[in-house]
Simulated assay, not measured.
Amino acid sequence: MTRVLLVPGRGEPRPEHWLRRWSAANPHHTWAPEPPGPPYRVDERVAALHAVLSAAEEPAVLVAHSAGCLTVAVWASRHTGPVRAALLVTPPYVGPDWRPGPDDPPDSFVGEVPRARLPFRSIVVASRTDPYATVEQFHGYARDWGAELYDAGEAGHLDAASGYGPWPAGERLLRRLLDGS
Rank of each mutant, 00 (worst) to 15 (best):
P13H: 01
R14G: 13
R14M: 06
P15H: 03
E16L: 03
H17Q: 01
W18E: 00
L19N: 00
W22R: 01
A25V: 01
H28Y: 12
H29C: 13
A32K: 05
P35R: 00
P35E: 01
P35G: 03
R41M: 04
D43S: 04
E44C: 05
V46I: 09
L49M: 13
L49T: 12
H50P: 11
S54A: 14
S54W: 03
A56R: 06
A56I: 06
A56C: 12
E57I: 00
E58M: 09
P59Y: 02
P59N: 06
P59D: 13
P59S: 12
A60R: 11
V61C: 11
S66G: 08
G68N: 06
C69Q: 09
C69W: 02
L70T: 05
T71R: 09
W75H: 09
R78Q: 15
H79L: 11
T80A: 11
V83N: 10
V83Y: 05
R84T: 12
R84G: 13
A85R: 06
A85T: 02
A86W: 06
A86K: 07
A86F: 10
T90S: 14
T90K: 07
P91T: 09
P91G: 10
Y93A: 15
V94F: 15
V94C: 14
D97R: 13
D97F: 09
